[in-house]
């Protein structure tokens, strides 16, 4: 193996490594987001309740905002747009999906939290945003959001806004089937 061939093969190795590194950045970015709460990315799996008592001394306002993206004739209603809670407390809020379209369709609510520092302190016990939903034409589906804010939520955070945006899901992308037999006026 001549020195030129040695150099070339080593360089090719680095090339392949860097190309793989570019693709490895995608999952790495997700991990990095979850750890630092960068860009409001939120957990996509249910988490266990932590019993650490409620911090009665201060209130945190939680705003809930729902929006609909293009291409999905659905509406997401929420019982109350704004609520006050103590850090450490567990809260349940009722959401209702309504399919205003004329056909059955898959859709998903993509969550986003701001301020991003609050993201690490938000623990979701059950959320409709964990998987895609299937609604028949005109169907209404009520699903709860149960979440808890840590006691050690930084003091300077007084307001946390949780935004859900509805997006259509192409049938090919269905990751996990929504639990069956939940249709009708649940």
């Amino acid at each position: 193996m001549s020195p030129v061939q040695r150099t070339v093969s080593r360089t090719l190795l680095v090339l392949v490594a860097m190309f793989a590194f570019a693709f490895a950045l995608v999952p790495l970015y997700d991990v990095f987001c979850r750890v630092t709460g960068l860009n409001g990315k939120v957990d996509t799996t249910a988490q266990a309740l932590v019993h650490e008592g409620v911090d009665e001394s201060r209130y945190v306002t939680v705003q809930l905002v729902t929006r609909s993206g293009a291409g999905l004739p659905w509406r997401l209603e929420v019982e109350q747009r704004q609520l006050r809670m103590h850090p450490g407390q567990t809260v349940e809020v009722g959401f209702t999906f309504v399919n205003q379209g004329a056909a059955e369709q898959w859709g998903r609510a993509v969550p986003s939290v701001t301020p991003s520092q609050a993201n690490r302190h938000l623990r979701k016990l059950s959320c409709f945003c964990f998987e895609e939903q299937r609604l028949a034409a005109g169907e209404r589906l009520a699903l709860p959001l149960v979440f808890q804010l840590d006691r050690d939520l930084p003091a300077e955070i007084h307001t946390v806004t949780l935004v859900y945006t509805l997006y259509p899901v192409a049938s090919g992308e269905i990751a996990r089937r929504a639990p069956e037999a939940q249709g009708g006026e649940a």
Partner: peptide
Amino acid sequence: GTSFFNAAGGGDPVLFQH
């Protein structure tokens, strides 16, 4: 039909910028 940078499918446009 993947969604590396499409928020609808779980992707993130800011990932593209990074």
